[in-house]
């Protein structure tokens, strides 16, 4: 356990302290806005796809907390919610059939690039493949919209440090009514707050509002992975900023959601304080975050839990009828 801590702590110390896991929504927005298929802001995409409403953590806040979720299920729903026609593939790169899937993926990605559409892939984080060079047999990709292009040889596609390969290709779009999209996204927010991700063993991971209990317990009992906790909290702070910006902007199209937006604004403010607390500590202890200021973080997380619970409750009241029509399966469209 301690070795694990130190490894992450020293790795974090060598690198600039930015959230390591850029989110899937960033990559998706980069591709769709370049293509002209999504013209609104990134928070609007993060919200309309319901991606920014996911909250799931490893119970000891391991660094995988931000990305351990059912990509196949969540990203498929995300595209469908905003009327984007998408195909995707995922698997273990150690599987004997991986070479077959890699070959197919390379050919599908090249086809998509020919049509001028970037492709979101997993390269130990979500990246965007922007171009390819058949002569040199390589892809060019970016880690975020403003970063320089990097090279990825075709045969390296999917051969990651993590055991996964993943890609999502966008094929087109259908017309959607924006207010319907907004309504559905908030229903999905309720689903994500209340339903555990079946892919994650409940003994090790907690989802939705229950993630707060896990975070509070790990911090109170000092059973957390410090570097992982640091990254995880910064990552979710970013998601809450998106959620707040989304709810605010959404109320321009759908004024009834203003009350919900106020809760998310308050939630984002608390996460700002959390970020501030995390960064202050980094300045004080530049050798690396071996432990967090749990004393300051605990009341802030309790406050965040209270506000996010109220936010979900306000959505339940606002969308009572469509939610109740779904009986015991809030997420089922």
């Amino acid at each position: 356990m301690n070795e694990h801590h130190n490894k992450h702590a020293s790795a974090a110390a060598d690198q600039p302290r930015v959230p390591l896991a850029s989110s899937f929504a960033d990559a998706m927005h980069q591709v769709l806005s370049a293509k002209g298929w999504f013209t609104l802001s990134k928070p609007m995409l993060a919200g309309m796809t319901a991606l920014c409403f996911r909250l799931s953590v490893h119970r000891q806040l391991h660094p995988d907390s931000a990305t351990a979720y059912n990509w196949a299920a969540e990203h498929c729903v995300a595209a469908d919610l905003i009327g984007i026609i998408a195909m995707q593939g995922a698997g273990f790169n150690f599987s004997p059939t991986f070479p077959l899937y890699q070959k197919q993926a390379i050919s599908e990605i090249r086809r998509s690039l020919e049509q001028g559409t970037g492709v979101v892939c997993w390269k130990d984080r979500f990246i965007v493949i922007t171009r390819c060079d058949d002569e040199r047999q390589l892809f060019y990709y970016t880690e975020n919209a403003s970063a320089a292009e990097l090279e990825l040889p075709y045969e390296q596609f999917g051969r990651n440090e993590s055991p996964y390969w993943y890609g999502q290709i966008y094929e087109g779009q259908i017309r959607k009514d924006i207010v319907q999209v907004l309504r559905e996204s908030f229903i999905q927010a309720v689903y994500k707050a209340e339903v555990h991700d079946l892919m994650l063993p409940e003994s090790q991971y907690a989802c939705g509002l229950r993630a707060y209990d896990a975070m509070l317990e790990a911090l109170a009992d000092n059973t957390y992975d410090a570097a992982g906790a640091y990254e995880t909290l910064l990552f979710y702070a970013g998601m809450k900023q998106d959620a707040a910006a989304y709810a605010r902007e959404a109320s321009q199209y759908w004024p009834e959601v203003e009350g919900v937006a106020e809760h998310y604004a308050a939630l984002a403010a608390v996460y700002n304080q959390i970020t501030h607390t995390l960064c202050k500590q980094t300045v004080q202890a530049p050798e690396g975050p071996c432990s967090l200021d749990a004393h300051s973080l605990l009341p802030l997380l309790r406050e965040a839990q209270r506000i996010e619970t109220a936010a979900i409750q306000s959505i339940r009241i606002l969308l009572r009828e469509p939610i109740e029509n779904r009986f015991h399966d809030v997420g089922l469209r």
């Binding site: 351990a68 990509w71 196949a72 299920a73 150690f94 055991p163 079946l198 892919m199 399966d329």
Partner: peptide
Amino acid sequence: DRKRSTLPRWGAHTAR
């Protein structure tokens, strides 16, 4: 059993 000792990023989920 690497397939079952590694947490996937796909698989069981509720229908949506």
